[in-house]
Design a protein around this nucleic acid. Structure first.
Length: 778
DNA sequence: CGCGAGACTTAGGATCAAATCC
DNA sequence: GGATTTGATCCTAAGTCTCGCG
């Protein structure tokens, strides 16, 4: 089913239709119309619920079922710490869920009309429409029936223990396996999954040892009873700042109105930012130019400003040429120079690229401060072209442990602050001026901090597997609810589940106009009672994250269709489709269904499930390794399509495709030729049998076989590439697919893991590679 | 209790380096 | 061995989600 959906997806186009880009409405405009059904009837109940919520505390202390995996410790004003929990473990989730779900459903049932009340329901809805209206929907959320029992109260007493036990028991198991597990593998791929091939004889022994030690198998340490503390000790060198601005040489000049002009240093620097991107299409966009010019003028000296009045009179071409030449020169540098540069690079990485976390050396993800430049938003970003200013050490907050060697700021300078907060994972942060967002220096995905979190993410998704049936059942019932809010929730959840849409938080203004599920507007869907022979088709067309277009036609259940129709009644195109719900509300609800559940878990869950299903469907024992890999890629692709992970078709796509075709043609000819020769040899052998002629025949046979294999390989390549033209596999592989599925698959079908994961990926997924057996089930 | 900020994950494109081609 | 292509890595924007505050 899912796959069929995906099939549709394949046809999605990347190109943007002509869109009206500035339709950004003040989002929650007035709606007249939609209203609550039966609003009153629930009030009482909700009130009592709310009261209960107030005591949520007690509630949770109750049985102590909820063992959580992660605590958060908050510092109180008085300096004390307060614990609360965040994540949860597999088993804890299961437990709590079982209990709470049971409770929930019994309670829930009372309120939700079970009978298919569609038509009636609709009528009522319609009617009410005209009576009550909520002009300002969003702000007017009714808190009525938060029927749930507020479980989520984070302050639950958690017992971490469940989790840890489970973790360690798993590891225990693993250790046992280990012996027989790993012995047979011949080309050992040192524990973490990294190949040794790069290393040469001598040191390798030593290095290997060292390597072994430095490879921290945190996943085998069952017991980091972490209560929200992310580390005990943290030491690092601070971030690496970009080099200072180098003024242009005197023979390179900026021109204004045809006249050469010497700019003040600051203005010159900003001018070079623009000059460097002269070729890029967005320098031609009006917003870009306008933003740039405004910000540029701000850094100009008075003199500059006096002269420069119009961007159109500015001529950056000489600057541009200068940089082009420069990079050309760089390319043409001699071997040694390049080598030297490289060494300098790795020296810096050595020094700044690692930190010491709880005594282990861990890679840092981004250890450089972002250099100044012009902001490049994606899509129609209103702020494109604005100046992103240079960050200095006084802008930077350092986070490390108290007793560690505090990183030194650049000489003569200061940090904004040095703090020692071990409830967060970042090493340094600063606020970027364009969007005023905090930027962080954090660890590499191969680190424990990231890995553990990743692992946990998949565990949550796995536990959704146990609950998903009842959750689906529940939201299907919601489609017939007489309460608008509930009905919208049911439909939204359905989209999130079935189509893997993102939650769709409200966005700040001044960003590109993109949406997710909850922020869909009426204009983003169209309804077709029948289309291409299918009934009740919803056509989606909107820009999602990164302004990637989502276009899909999906047949839905009739009740969904009818509900959508109602949601759209009396609304303008730019009104919210789901005007009664928000992501916060939705997530709260989801968390009631299952601790730790939020909208994005569905993406992870559906992605991983799809991969597993597809893999088992597509892989056959007797395939060659190449064929198996093609199957893997196809399964991966099904997921990428589901998640709408697109990429621009490679510029050289057509060309390289053609080339491949030619190769195939050539190969075919070769085969023909080889076959002819084989025939000849056979004939010769028949006529004058001899050892020699026999050998020759065999030789020729082999040649034919080899060529045919090569041909097959090429053909597979073509298919693979064709299908991959606009689909990006990387994102899902990295973020949505439980690596244990892939590892298990590799083991089961004898595919070397290196064929699936490259070095970086193997580092990131080291935990999974190390702990997973062939029989792992997501 | 809504809002904004903070922290962290997810994302596509640009850039760099290695592999392959000719 | 230089040019081209492909794949890995870097970069940082753009999401999600939770929490604290007014």
């Amino acid at each position: 089913m899912r796959l069929e959906d995906s099939g549709n997806g394949l046809k999605r186009t990347t190109s943007d239709p002509e869109r009206d880009t500035d339709r950004k409405k003040t989002k929650k405009s007035h709606l007249n119309g939609t209203t609550e059904l039966n609003g009153g009837s629930n009030d009482m109940e909700s009130k009592s619920k709310n009261n209960k919520e107030d005591n949520g505390w007690k509630k949770n202390e109750k049985k102590g079922i909820n063992s959580g995996q992660e605590f958060t410790i908050k510092k109180e004003k008085d300096g004390s710490y307060k614990k609360s929990i965040k994540g949860l473990s597999d088993s804890s989730v299961k437990n709590c869920i079982k209990e709470e779900w049971a409770k929930d459903s019994s309670g829930a049932e009372k309120n939700i009309p079970m009978k298919e009340e569609n038509e009636v329901g609709n009528k009522i809805l319609d009617k009410d429409h005209h009576h009550t209206s909520h002009p300002d929907k969003k702000r007017h959320k009714d808190h009525k029936s938060e029927r749930g029992k507020d479980k989520k109260d984070k302050k639950k007493e958690k017992l971490l223990n469940g989790t840890l036990q489970e973790k360690s028991s798993r590891n225990e198991k693993r250790k046992h396996h280990k012996v027989d597990d790993e012995e047979p593998k011949k080309k050992k791929v040192s524990k973490g999954g990294r190949e040794d091939k790069g290393r040469t004889g001598k040191n390798s022994e030593e290095e290997k040892k060292k390597d072994e030690n430095s490879k921290w198998k945190w996943w085998e340490e069952g017991n980091n009873s972490n209560d929200g503390q992310k580390w005990q000790t943290l030491e690092h060198r601070g971030p690496l700042f970009p080099p200072e601005y180098e003024p242009l040489p005197n023979n390179v000049s900026f021109y204004y109105g045809g006249e050469p002009m010497k700019l003040s240093l600051a203005a010159e620097e900003v001018a070079t930012f623009y000059a460097k991107m002269l070729e890029h299409e967005y320098t031609s966009k009006e917003a870009f130019q306008k933003n740039f010019f405004t910000d540029w003028k701000e850094v100009m000296s008075d003199d500059d400003r006096k002269t420069i009045k119009k961007l159109s009179k500015c001529d950056f071409s000489e600057l541009h040429k200068y940089f082009v030449n420069k990079s050309e020169e760089k390319k043409n540098m001699s071997k040694q120079e390049k080598q030297a540069l490289k060494e300098e690079g790795s020296r810096l990485t050595e020094e700044y690229g690692y930190c010491l976390l709880d005594g282990h050396r861990e890679k840092i993800g981004n250890f450089r401060v972002e250099p100044p430049g012009l902001f490049r938003g994606r899509g129609e970003h209103p702020k494109m072209g604005k100046l992103k200013k240079r960050i200095h050490s006084v802008d930077v907050i350092i986070n490390c442990s108290k007793d560690s060697k505090i990183p030194a700021p650049p000489s003569g300078k200061k940090w904004k602050r040095v703090q020692h907060d071990n409830t967060v994972t970042w090493l340094a942060s600063w606020v970027e001026n364009v969007q005023k967002h905090t930027k962080y220096i954090m660890l590499n995905p191969s680190s424990k901090l990231k890995g553990e979190k990743d692992w946990q993410k998949y565990e949550v998704a796995r536990s959704l597997k146990l609950e998903v049936d009842s959750i689906r059942h529940q939201y299907q019932q919601d489609w017939s609810s007489r309460e608008m809010k509930t009905r919208q929730r049911g439909v939204a959840l359905y989209f999130i589940d079935k189509l893997a849409l993102r939650a769709g938080n409200e966005k700040e203004d001044d960003t590109a106009d993109t949406v997710g599920c909850c922020s869909l507007r009426v204009e983003h869907i169209s309804l077709h009672e029948s289309l291409d022979g299918q009934e009740w088709v919803v056509e989606f067309d909107f820009l999602g994250k990164d302004s990637i277009r989502y276009y899909n036609k999906v047949p839905v259940e009739k009740r969904v269709f009818k509900s959508l129709k109602i949601f759209m009644e009396n609304k303008d195109p730019e009104d919210d489709l789901f005007d009664r719900i928000s992501t916060t509300y939705l997530n709260k609800k989801l968390n009631e269904y299952m601790t730790g559940l939020s909208a994005k878990v569905f993406r992870t869950f559906n992605a991983s499930t799809t991969l597993q299903d597809q893999l088992s469907k597509l892989t056959k024992e007797d395939m060659t390794v190449e064929e198996k890999i093609l199957s893997y890629n196809r399964a991966n692709r099904a997921v990428a399509i589901l998640c709408n992970h697109q990429r621009a078709a490679p510029k050289t796509f057509e060309k390289s495709m053609q080339l491949l075709q030619e190769k195939i043609q050539k190969k075919k000819e070769q085969i023909e030729q080889a076959k002819k020769e084989l025939k000849k040899a056979k004939k010769a052998h028949k006529e004058h049998p001899s050892d020699r002629s026999k050998k020759l025949v065999e030789q020729k046979e082999n040649a034919v076989r080899r060529l045919e294999e090569q041909l097959k390989k090429l053909e597979l390549q073509v298919t693979d590439r064709e299908e991959n033209k606009v689909i990006a596999l990387g994102t899902s592989k990295l973020n949505y697919l439980d690596p244990r599925i892939s590892v298990a698959w590799c083991k089961k079908y004898n595919v070397p893991i290196e064929k699936i994961y490259n070095k970086t990926q193997r580092e990131k997924f080291a935990w999974a590679i190390d702990m997973t057996d062939a029989d792992f089930q997501f």
